[in-house]
Simulated assay, not measured.
Amino acid sequence: MKTLTLKLKAPLQAYGNEATFGRRTSNPYPTKSAVIGMIAAALGYDRRNSKIIDLNKLSFATRVDQPGKIMSDFQIVEYAKNANKKDKKLTYRDYLQDAIFMVAIGSENSDLINEIHYALRHPKFPLFLGRRSCPPAGPLEIEVFDNQNPLMVLQTMGWQAAEWYQKKHSNFKAEIVYDASLGSNDNFKFQLRDEVGSFDQRNRYHNYREVVSTYIPMKNETKWHAETMHDIMANI
């Protein structure tokens, strides 16, 4: 199996797990449907392209290297109930601040992974980390691995959190959520509703898939520097 990893980082990210008119919350880590949507955008697929459903076959795993803090945005929405009257409603949107995630997708079809790799480097449509208001913080950091599945790659890849975060968390355990078919099912297994059914705005829906969650300790490789003894008043 050939595996491609993406480092997802931005000031704000949002991965919907509940969508109502009044409130839209965020999953604490990237959903498979969000990543497939980003790949489909890079490949130039429109929302009703049947090829999007085929992307569900990609093996998928995500690792939380730097959990984000929830930020709620309050928006006033004005809409017309009838021709003569307008109403205003307070709505809520949740975002993840300063989060860093490692995402891995895999396939036995090496050509498909190569195609996705090229497309993410040269996207046909703009890429977003969940919502349109959440662009990536610069070009995506992408790596490709041969003969490893997404779970294997994320279990061995070094910790990707920011240096300041690593200094504050010396004994960090990262959560990995992966397709149940990828590895041991001895860990916590549950159903996640993030498999793409349709992105068509007239009939958007998602299906359930079986996933496994586990935690692995991360090695802190931050280089610690001794404090510099410096007297700013010495030359006065």
Rank of each mutant, 00 (worst) to 15 (best):
N203Y: 06
E143I: 10
S198P: 02
L182N: 00
I176P: 03
K81N: 06
P135T: 10
M1Q: 03
V64W: 00
F190M: 06
P136E: 05
F21P: 15
P139E: 14
P30C: 14
W164L: 09
I116K: 12
F60C: 00
T3E: 06
T156A: 14
A234D: 12
K167T: 08
A34H: 04
D186I: 01
I236F: 13
E18V: 14
N207M: 11
H169W: 03
K2L: 06
G44C: 06
Y215W: 10
S198E: 03
L129W: 05
T62A: 05
A61S: 00
A19L: 13
Q166G: 05
D94Q: 14
G158L: 12
I176L: 05
K89S: 06
G106M: 08
D46M: 04
E227P: 03
S72T: 02
H206G: 02
K88G: 05
Y208R: 05
P126D: 09
V212F: 04
A42P: 05
R131T: 08
I176W: 02
K2R: 12
P136K: 06
M229C: 11
S213Q: 07
N147C: 07
M218N: 07
N235A: 14
T5V: 14
E227N: 13
L151I: 13
Y165Q: 08
Q13W: 10
F128M: 09
K88E: 03
I52Q: 01
W224N: 11
H230W: 14
P123E: 14
N109W: 12
S50H: 01
H169C: 03
L140D: 08
S107V: 13
K51T: 00
W164D: 15
S213N: 05
R202C: 09
S33N: 15
K88R: 10
K88V: 05
D98Y: 09
T25M: 12
L192M: 04
Q75N: 02
D87V: 08
P217I: 12
F145L: 07
K81A: 09
V103G: 06
Y165E: 12
H117C: 10
K85M: 08
L4C: 11
Q13S: 14
R47P: 00
Y29M: 15
I52M: 00
F172H: 00
I113V: 07
A14C: 15
Y95N: 07
H169P: 03
E115L: 14
P67C: 01
L4T: 09
D73A: 04
S50E: 03
F60I: 02
L43Q: 04
I39V: 13
K32A: 15
R121V: 03
V64G: 00
D98A: 10
K167C: 11
Y92L: 14
K2N: 12
I105W: 05
V35S: 09
N84W: 03
D87K: 12
T214G: 07
K223S: 09
A41M: 07
I142S: 11
F199N: 01
A226V: 07
L96Q: 04
F172L: 03
T91D: 03
W159Y: 06
K189M: 08
K167H: 05
D94C: 08
V64R: 01
N56W: 00
P136V: 12
L4K: 12
I236M: 15
P11T: 15
F101N: 06
L55M: 00
N17R: 15
T62G: 00
M71D: 00
A104F: 13
K2C: 07
D231Q: 09
A83E: 13
Y215E: 10
R121H: 09
A19F: 14
V153F: 06
A42C: 05
L129Y: 02
